[in-house]
Design a protein around this nucleic acid. Structure first.
Lengths: 215, 215
DNA sequence: CGCCCTGTTGATACGATTCAAATATCGTGG
DNA sequence: CCACGATATTTGAATCGTATCAACAGGGCG
């Protein structure tokens, strides 16, 4: 089965929730591209609590960091049904050599990565949990390019592992958003969110914009 | 003066503390390389409090993200006397086209960037402030490649802007480290740190490793 | 040498974590 | 299709850590 993967240049697949693309420390032989769906990169904290350091949605490249040392730095797990392209290193090497387009693509991926890395720090790791949850929802909507404003919510533990907080705190913040009708349940795990109000909340950090007032 | 910069292919310079290499939103025409010293990338938070999203030390490239849109994403400020190389975009373009080495360099820079981005999240943005400060000191030692274990401390406000906490909290944590003789003042703003104890503290997060016990 | 700025320390209030319990939800098999 | 058990989420109350404000000390610069 593994042989197949090495021989076959590029393989497309749709994988179910929870699929592990690769694990931290594993030696790497391919990168992936997300056609649609959502993938988390998890880093094991020394104290046991796993921390999610990145989310990868439509169009993102997964595992590029292994290009340097040939070892994956994180565990990559599908957070929902996800469509992937698997690109073995061999194929990349053939494309890479002296290819100007390759450089452009790298820069593009890098730029995306940096943008989200910055937001992860400024929006998701700083300030009161309430705000961080709001920012996270906005980010999820973007990454999964949900035009409708509907969103399939990840498990609370995942949200907590993204924000570096406790599951209970996330739950409380979400409960408040539901009460304020910013999140409206339309299906199991799926909510339609009031983009208007949300962007107003995330946009300006003024204390008066607190959603307790709206409720 | 600006003309000079565009005409001259690569210019070396040593700039004093506080020098602004470029500002957020400014249109870009060059990237920089740090020969030695320390540069901070600052992102202006909507609520006014500036957040430092990256530190760049010896060997790092500054402003590469502007390759994509031609606009700088952060403000870059020298945190101490720093030696730079200024590389105008024109020079880069000439090197870039179909150059395989260029790709390798990009990947190398990217890998470095990702490594620190991950640590910024896991080590500097999570957990009690005490630990975060310890991790930050370890990072500073690495980035400025201080082999001796001596370190020129940035201002408390900068440390706070890195950790996303208050200056007072940082001050308290540092005071504790000084009392525990992990930090020993050898000159104004300069401390020699007990690498042994520090790495023990940062390495394992066990509560018994708390430095209150050491003091 | 003295002033100003930076850093330190203390007291209080707020927010988050934690542990525990209750409730809701999901997947499964009858 | 419904009932059930297992899992996930919500809620409550007490504790702990951090932010905040204000006052103070100390070092560095003119």
């Amino acid at each position: 089965a593994d042989f197949d993967q090495i021989l076959e240049p590029i393989r497309r697949a749709v994988v179910p929730t929870g699929t592990i693309l690769y694990s931290e420390g594993e030696s790497a032989n391919a990168v992936y591209t997300v056609r649609w769906g959502l993938v988390k990169l998890v880093k094991q904290s020394p104290d046991g609590a796993p921390r999610i350091v990145r989310l990868l949605g439509t169009g993102a490249a997964v595992g590029l960091e292994a290009l340097k040392e040939g070892v994956y730095w994180h565990s990559a797990v599908a957070m929902r049904e996800t469509a992937l392209c698997r690109v073995p290193f061999g194929v990349l090497d053939r494309l890479q050599t002296g290819n100007a387009q390759m450089t452009d693509r790298l820069i593009l991926q890098w730029a995306r990565f940096m943008e989200y890395a910055d937001r992860w720090i400024t929006d998701l790791s700083t300030g009161p949990v309430k705000l961080r949850v709001q920012h996270l929802i906005a980010l999820l909507l973007e990454i999964t390019d949900s035009t409708t404003g509907e969103i399939e919510m990840p498990h609370v533990d995942d949200l907590a592992a993204i924000l570096g907080t406790s599951a209970e705190s996330v739950s409380r913040a979400m409960a408040e958003l539901k009460r304020a009708k910013v999140l409206n349940r339309v299906a199991p795990r799926t909510y339609r969110c009031d983009l208007e109000t949300l962007s107003r909340l995330t946009g300006l950090h003024s204390p008066s914009a607190d959603f307790a007032r709206i409720a």
